[in-house]
């Protein structure tokens, strides 16, 4: 075991520390998920169509889903009378916008991936993620945004033989 002096110790100024989540106190926030679950259960129910339910003696394909749909609705209703506020965190505007932007970046990746291949999609995604959402330096962003997709391409396509949609950038050097 090595002795470590203070100078050798890593800088942990950016290590996320445990901070207690902000507890929401709203009754509504704890009940909205229950309404969503009931809506989902009803949506599935509408899709049962002519699925045969059968009976206990001979349960059909619809028997089990029907039991589950009823169960979800029943327990969601129980949730309306129980105290479910524990664990709810408040949605703060800046944080929520960052997360939505994060999902936007992921969605952009999927769309670009389908149209122009993996490398360009990866470059665009990492630029958005590292610079736009995490505020990394331009130097680090550009290096990682170029190197990571290229290495991923080499690993999956060249080493593992995986087929991605035709890649616009790889076609520049005869890749696929």
């Amino acid at each position: 075991m090595t002795d470590m002096t203070d100078d050798q110790l890593p800088d942990i100024s950016e290590v996320p520390t445990e901070h207690p989540p902000t507890r929401g106190t709203g009754w509504i926030a704890s009940k909205v998920p229950l309404l969503v679950m009931i809506a989902v259960a009803i949506l599935f129910h509408t899709q049962m169509g002519d699925m045969e339910v059968g009976s206990l003696t001979e349960p059909g394909p619809g028997f089990w889903p029907r039991v589950l749909i009823v169960g979800i609705i029943l327990f969601s209703l129980v949730g309306f009378v129980a105290d479910l506020k524990d664990g709810i965190e408040s949605f703060e505007l800046s944080g929520t916008v960052r997360v939505l932007a994060g999902f936007g970046a992921l969605a952009a990746f999927v769309v670009i991936f389908d149209n122009t291949g993996m490398i360009l999609a990866g470059i665009v995604f990492l630029m958005l993620w590292l610079k736009g959402l995490n505020g990394e330096s331009w130097r680090l962003t550009v290096i990682l945004a170029l190197v990571t997709p290229l290495l991923t391409y080499l690993l999956f396509v060249e080493a593992l033989g995986v087929r991605f949609p035709e890649d616009l950038i790889a076609s520049l050097w005869g890749g696929r």
Binding site: M4, P10, L106, L126, F164
Partner: peptide, 29 residues
């Protein structure tokens, strides 16, 4: 142990971005 502790220098945002890229590609395969 001392070497592993040095890993805390890597920001979670960077790890997250790379992990997401590999994840998306991985699920496609």
């Amino acid at each position: 142990v001392g070497i592993f502790v040095q890993l805390l220098r890597v920001r979670i945002g960077i790890i997250g971005g790379i992990a997401l890229l590999v994840t998306l590609v991985g699920v496609y395969t």
